[in-house]
Amino acid sequence: MKKLILSTSVLMLLFSCGENETTESVSATSEIAHRGCASHDVLLEKLSENPKLAQRMSEIESFTEKAIQEGKLVNGKIVIPVVVNVLYKTSAENISLAQIQSQIDVLNADFNATNIEYNSVPSVFSGVKADIDISFVLDAVVRKSTKKSSWRTDDSMKKSNKGGINPTSPTTKLNLWVCNLSGGILGYAQFPGGPSATDGVVIDNNAMGTTGSASAPFNLGRTATHEIGHWLNLRHIWGDASCGSDLVSDTPTHNTANYGCPSFPHYSTCSGSPIEMTMNYMDYTNDSCMYMFSNGQKSRMLALFSSGGARNSFAQP
């Protein structure tokens, strides 16, 4: 496992130089084959628009590092209310309550290590696989008919004056927007530190839950698990750069994203040629082939809910 060395200068380098692996432009055929997450690209855009955001995120990283080092992580289960905002033009896009609940069920399984694949984690990683102990409860569903055939990653779906839906109580509820995303993008999330007016996660309606409009190979609800990982301060496991850092000490160094379902063991081309954790939720593999978080990732997420943490308001009684 890699040694984690975190400083403000390293963090700023991560923000500014992680463009080797930005979201690719995909054709209609590759939309099915390759996962498309725009979270890193959206982050780079927001950093270029708002210089203060980099400072805020640097402060969050410093807090996270200190909380982990001192063991000052939140105690007890975190329960997150979820507001699902559905934007639809067609009846298929107006996804059912059953489809929405299937997604909530997947999140609860994945973040509490009760997913059926959890016991399939290879022995080389069994010592670091984690039960995050975060639960999700469906709080409300907001629906809105729209004339837009697709939505871009410009946060317009989060703004009523742009035809979207404003978030509901974003400092105490996770807002999840479901719509038809353009460009082969399955989803994207706002990292901690951004404005509350756009905080939350966006999921393509064909990658939401396990039934209805959900389409293979992204029909097991893992797109939301992946994106909520970003919302909880996790990076892509390859660090969005060749042999980059995901700021987690117990995940192997990946040379790039993995797609589909790689055969195990899959070796990295980075220094030491470690076996890659291709089954980690923060890689780009198919839904059926991602099924674990690590203890280091758990620590990063739980640090957010500590006193003074960026998402501490969600931990309040």
Rank of each mutant, 00 (worst) to 15 (best):
V141Y: 01
Y281N: 06
Q99K: 02
I100V: 15
N205S: 14
W231G: 05
S48Q: 14
H236S: 10
S249M: 12
N94I: 02
S156L: 07
L107S: 03
V178G: 04
E59I: 04
S299W: 06
S62Y: 07
K159W: 05
T256Q: 12
S213E: 07
R311G: 00
K2P: 15
K52C: 12
S313D: 10
C289N: 14
P317Y: 04
L174W: 05
N20L: 09
Y267K: 11
S27K: 01
K77S: 12
N206P: 02
G194Q: 14
H34F: 13
S263Q: 08
D41K: 08
Q99D: 04
N255H: 15
F191C: 07
T90R: 03
G308I: 01
I203W: 00
D240K: 00
N286A: 12
W151V: 06
I275Q: 13
C17M: 08
M292N: 13
M282V: 01
G193W: 03
T251N: 15
C289I: 01
E59K: 12
L304D: 10
R152T: 10
F264P: 03
A241D: 10
Q99H: 02
S213R: 02
G184V: 00
S313G: 04
M157I: 15
A92W: 02
P81N: 03
F125K: 01
K77M: 08
N75H: 13
V202Q: 06
K144C: 10
S149V: 06
S150Q: 15
C179D: 05
V202D: 06
R311E: 06
V124Q: 11
T90I: 06
N206H: 13
V137Y: 03
T29I: 08
Y267C: 06
S271C: 00
K66L: 15
